[in-house]
Design a protein around this nucleic acid. Structure first.
Lengths: 225, 225
DNA sequence: GCTCGGTAAACTGTAGACAAAAGCCAATCC
DNA sequence: GGATTGGCTTTTGTCTACAGTTTACCGAGC
């Protein structure tokens, strides 16, 4: 057992480039989320391939995956188009997110230990200071991290995977909204932590439900602008 | 407008073969669900390609999709392996299913019309007679159709898509269980219809939750065998 | 007898090429 | 003048070929 003598952290995984399709997938996903590729736009394989400096094959495989995850629509014999979210779909997606996040909050309340709770408080403090500094990007990132942490504490891998996909798409649809929500969001986060720390499953569920519902309300108000 | 003179039904869609990857995908999924391809088995691309009479490319694309949906694990530079469900994962998956199905029941109770309710009753009758006849395959199929109908009545496309994936995997894990549940399952279906018809969202949620929870209990009892 | 090193086979990852289908534009006919 | 048909271009769908990596096997040495 040679490996027993090695420190675990120093040789994490011998960072290797990884499959091309993965990197193409992430690149395209990034381009879509920052709206460099606009909804409805026709994605030509050879164009993307040339632009990324790879062959068409990895691009195809990445588009396949993006298709199954709902980012692009793959029309047979016609190609890939960036998905165009409708009002109805956005609303349905948010309904599902509310459901998944609320369940995660309940499970977190049931399972979380003191270490997890202090981690949440740390993230919450980081988010609040980011709000105070007006660092919008950091606010958004920390918000995502907070929800991810709650999901992790829930300890349900399947749920986490689904919620991860749904959350990212929600963030895509509601990017402008997320930038508006500001400080109020973090007050609600504090309430959630309190409920989880108290192991109050019902209250954690309800707080999280109200929290995500606020996002939807903000969205619909935005339409009036 | 020449087409106006043509009868619509006679030329439905000129049934086209459709993309190869689709058919390969469905073929592989079928082989996995009926356990012709066993969990943990190494899927060699060229082998599958030869067996299905196509090239490796469509097989690769099908495997990609199966990977993102959790049916196979794609280990880099090593190939595809049929996913091996663990006890923990099966339990988590069932938790998620309970969540999604319960929400679907609630929405169905809120939205369903008389047409939808009678459709449910029809399916229920069909399932009961199948139980009486001892036609196990028909029972399983009708059960799936019943749940799909409830999902359709819920009117949330995003939810339906997620639940569709989860349900199919649940059915894969719990195939032996489904064959045992028999008549009791359909009594619960009747209760669900009653709750939906009464537009009682809370009761519909609870009935569906209890229903799927019964499946889990049956599963754990099975382990004792 | 066991371990280590080297070699070979097999499989995946990627690239390039060819054929088929869809869309577009122009020329033609009513 | 408008609609239609024909051919052309573009893009996808599929196949074949090649390079890189991993795994397994076999022989030599301790």
């Amino acid at each position: 057992m040679l490996s027993a003598g090695l420190p675990q952290g120093t040789v994490p995984k011998l960072e290797r480039p990884g499959p091309l399709r993965e990197r193409v997938y992430e690149a395209l996903l990034e381009l879509i989320t920052i709206r460099a590729l606009r909804p409805g736009q026709h994605l030509v394989e050879s164009e993307l391939a040339g632009h990324l400096g790879v062959s068409r094959q990895p691009v195809r495989e990445a588009l396949q995956r993006l298709n199954t995850e709902g980012w692009v629509d793959l029309r047979p014999a016609q190609g890939a188009f960036v998905h165009e979210p409708t009002e109805e779909e956005a609303d349905q997606l948010l309904t599902v997110r509310t459901l998944l996040e609320a369940e995660a909050a309940r499970l977190a309340a049931a399972n979380a230990g003191t270490a997890g709770i202090s981690a949440l408080e740390e993230l919450c403090a980081k988010g609040e200071s980011a709000v105070a500094d007006g660092d919008v990007d950091l606010v958004v990132a920390t918000n995502a991290a907070f929800h991810a942490k709650v999901m992790e504490l829930a300890g349900n891998v399947v749920l986490a995977e689904l919620a991860g996909q749904v959350d990212r798409r929600v963030r895509w649809y509601y990017t402008p909204v997320a930038r508006q929500r500001g400080i109020q969001s973090w007050i609600e986060h504090r309430e959630l932590i309190a409920a989880i720390a108290a192991r109050d499953e019902a209250r954690a569920t309800e707080v999280m439900r109200a929290h995500t519902e606020h996002t939807r309300k903000t969205y619909h108000e935005r339409e009036a602008l």
